[in-house]
Design a protein around this nucleic acid. Structure first.
Length: 797
DNA sequence: ATAGGGTTAG
């Protein structure tokens, strides 16, 4: 079933709004009666006609009217403007193309270029530039600034600098302030300091530095190139500063990660009595949101409203992202209401702004775990109006909140029913969904899509997701290959690979990667150590783990956090050193959270320590954990001690406190897709065969010495009866199905949503002795490789 | 003519 979702075909690229592409189909209204002379006495098109002209039909009428009266140079210009003003750029281009070069005014070309910079940056602006030259129209000092600006829209092009040089050298044009102000964002977007400095020098030499616009653009350019100190120098040297200068500096600091500097400058604005405008407030709100400090963002919002300013679309979007990052549902809803009110009476709303709001709302609701509401909003946006962000926000919402299947469904819908191409964000989200499911085949298809498309600088992000996907889908070697082929790696890349080795029980490999990571000059952080400790724990490398834990602060300056203590409890606990684990918890410098007690409880289950288990469970109940795992673990501990009365008490307690046991389920990655089994599941059409094979398998392995461990009977079924139910656990059904359908020697891949039960683990071990398939079982904690009657976990699970 | 906005990883 799943396979059909992802027939990832070659990307269907839309030609975009490339007006040029439409040229050949454009009906051209042109008369050869054009008088080339600009000195006509015929009146120009009245300005009022422009303003009223909203539709193409109206523009064509004006064109006709002018034709009848005899088109002149001025009229040509006007008609071009009319076409531009009602978005009919192709008509405007066609008109200019058919105009004799001597009559086609450069100003019309400039107007066209300016417009295309706004809508489809480089492509059209540059094409138009070349086209006008080809048609014999020479660029002037107004042409270059906008073409250069367009170059900045597409990174990695050094064209902007070349054009600037051509403008000053070849054409000997003296750029004015406007030119500079348009070149600078280009060099900022390119992160091209050399060009920026060149322009800066030019401005100083030509006395243009006094211009506030130039100064502001310089501040912005330096800040965007990451050199805030140079930005600050320019800012301080400016003779005249307006609110834009301050805003540029504040956001410059914020975006360079120098948040405290940004804030203190914002405060300074108050002291200096610079009146903050809506951009200032919005920038500060956005800065808080980007640093996941949503409540402070809300605070600033209230201050803004107290100062008498009303939010605009951008403010609302920033605010939504603030609510999203801290999961502030009530405030998010309030913002939603506000947006509705604003949307209803907003005249100045640009097209596309409402979509941005919708996207922000979808993101906010998914981050607040309100997937239903998010979905309703998503569905309310017409499919042709959705853009890649709309899709990604919804897909990502599902991927991050456990509904990976829905994420994949939605992705396939996007691929099949729209012309929207996924970007790096979308790919990351869909890979996350694959990781969840262990959906190797879909993951591989996504990988091939990645190889066929250019993701540029975002490739690092995507590759990191691929490493995770391959690790969690049972193919660490493929993860390693991705890692090896990466041109650029960051600490996430290294840590992901380590985590991969860790979950496959390859502790030594993980530690080797850790050393290599240090050798590569990357500093391990808190997450890295969680992964290291986890790897040690699953490989039974207790002494190694203790050494890393004890050194992480001394040697690497990473202070152990609750997660690290939980890892240590897990590490010691699995190794049977329960007293040491308990002592460690007592000595913790912070309050232990539920993950710590769950680790202890799990260890007590493995080592059948009822007393300590009860203690851990009692501490957990104090934390009001609604996690069913706690109850199940304790119940299993009691069952292990044959204390059936206590087992049934737990059951009552669960009912009393309304805790539902998550149903255990397992799924198999088969040739035809994914097949899912629940405990005691008879829904599969081959159920009869599956149960018969399972029964045969049990008989067979009993002969090899297998003894059912009925203590685990309660792990997966909600019935108090034991015995037969043990053989209906979802992972056993999945195994039987996989053996039934697999070809000789193929690897069997099974995933289970909970921890694998002890009896099933034993069964898998025995079965691997009697079949020639390697069996890969992933549970909620790690991977088990069963082969020739043994498991890679060596008991550390 | 310059400043602010939505989706991604260990």
């Amino acid at each position: 079933m799943l396979q059909r979702y992802c027939s990832l075909k070659a990307p269907r690229k839309l030609l975009g709004r490339t007006q040029l592409a439409f040229l050949s189909q454009t009906p051209i209204i042109f008369s050869s009666t054009l008088s080339p002379s600009p000195s006509s006495l015929a009146p120009r098109v009245p300005i009022s006609l422009f303003k009223e002209c909203r539709s193409l039909a109206a523009a064509k009428r004006i064109h006709q009217q002018v034709l009848v009266q005899g088109l002149t140079f001025y009229h040509l210009n006007d008609v071009v403007s009319v076409y531009i003003s009602c978005n009919a750029t192709c008509q405007a281009i066609a008109l200019l193309e058919r105009t004799p070069p001597s009559a086609a005014p450069v100003s019309s070309w400039n107007a066209l270029i300016q417009r295309s910079v706004r809508f489809s940056p480089l492509h059209d602006a540059l094409h138009l530039y070349y086209k006008m030259k080809k048609l014999g129209c020479s660029p002037d000092c107004y042409t270059f600034p906008f073409v250069i600006k367009a170059c900045g829209e597409i990174p990695s092009l050094r064209l902007g600098g070349l054009l600037f040089a051509r403008m000053t050298n070849d054409f000997s044009m003296r750029p004015n302030a406007v030119s500079l102000v348009n070149v600078l964002p280009g060099s900022a977007a390119l992160g091209s300091l050399p060009l920026g400095r060149q322009v800066h020098g030019f401005a100083v030499r030509n006395g243009l530095f006094e211009d506030v616009f130039v100064g502001n653009a310089l501040v912005d350019m330096y800040a965007k190139c990451g050199v805030t100190d140079e930005a600050s120098k320019v800012f301080k040297r400016m003779r005249e500063r307006d609110v834009v200068s301050w805003n540029a500096m504040v956001t410059g600091y914020a975006q360079a990660g120098e948040f405290d500097e940004a804030l203190s400058l914002f405060e300074e604005m108050g002291e200096e009595n610079v009146e903050c405008n809506i951009v200032t407030w919005t920038a500060v709100i956005a800065a808080y949101a980007q640093r996941e400090r949503g409540y402070e963002a809300l605070d600033v919002f209230h201050k803004m409203r107290n100062s008498g300013l009303e939010p605009n679309v951008v403010t609302l979007i920033s605010l939504l992202s603030g609510c999203a990052c801290v999961g502030a549902l009530p405030q998010g809803k309030e913002t939603h209401c506000y947006a509705i009110k604003r949307l209803l009476n907003m005249d100045s709303m640009e097209p596309g702004d409402d979509l941005m709001i919708m996207n922000g709302l979808i993101d906010m609701y998914t981050k607040c775990k309100e997937l239903q509401i998010a979905r309703t909003i998503f569905d309310s946006v017409k499919i042709e109006d959705r853009n890649v962000v709309t899709w990604t926000a919804m897909i990502g919402g599902y991927a991050q909140h456990g509904d990976a299947n829905e994420a994949i469904d939605l992705f396939s819908l996007m691929m099949q029913q729209t012309f929207t191409s996924p970007n790096a964000f979308t790919i990351s989200c869909i890979l996350m969904a694959c990781s969840h499911l262990g959906a190797l085949r879909i993951g591989e298809q996504v990988h091939s899509y990645v190889l066929r498309n250019r993701f540029g600088p975002s490739l690092l992000f995507v590759d990191n997701c691929l490493i995770d996907m391959y690790s969690k889908s049972g193919n660490v070697d493929a993860a390693r290959t991705v890692f090896n082929n990466m041109k650029e790696r960051n600490s996430v890349s290294w840590t992901s690979l380590m985590a991969g080795y860790g979950m496959h029980g390859r502790g030594a490999d993980a530690l080797q990667i850790f050393d290599q990571m240090r050798g590569a000059g990357l500093a391990p952080d808190g997450v890295t150590f969680v992964v290291v400790l986890y790897a040690c724990s699953h490989a039974g490398m207790v002494e190694h783990g203790m050494r890393y834990f004890n050194n992480m602060k001394k040697e690497f300056g990473v202070v152990p956090f609750v997660e690290h203590y939980a890892c240590m409890v897990d590490l010691l606990g699995r190794a049977g050193r329960l007293e040491e684990a308990k002592k460690l918890i007592e000595d913790m410098p912070m309050e232990p959270t539920s993950i710590v007690w769950i680790a202890l409880l799990g260890a007590c289950r493995i080592h059948a320590n009822v007393e300590l288990g009860e203690y851990a469970a009692s501490r957990l109940s104090r934390l009001e954990s609604q996690d069913d795992g706690t109850y199940i673990l304790l119940s299993n501990i009691y069952a292990g001690a044959r204390r059936w009365k206590d087992v049934s008490n737990i059951r009552s307690l669960m009912q009393y406190s309304g805790v539902q046991k998550k149903p255990g389920c397992s799924w198999v990655q088969g040739k035809k897709g994914v097949v899912t089994f629940y405990a005691g599941d008879w829904s599969h059409p081959q159920s009869q065969e599956i149960y018969e094979l399972l029964s045969d398998l049990i008989k067979c392995i009993k002969a090899l010495g297998y003894v059912p461990e009925t203590n685990f009977a309660l792990h997966d079924v909600d019935d108090e009866e034991k015995g037969d139910f043990l053989f209906e656990h979802s992972e056993k059904l999945a195994l039987a199905y996989a053996i039934l359908t697999s070809t000789a020697g193929a690897t069997i891949r099974i995933t289970k949503n909970l921890r694998v039960c002890g009896d099933c683990h034993t069964v898998f071990t025995y079965v691997s002795q009697s079949v020639d398939n390697e069996i890969l079982l992933r549970d909620s904690s790690r991977f088990h490789h069963f082969k020739n009657g043994s498991c890679s976990c060596n008991g550390y699970w």
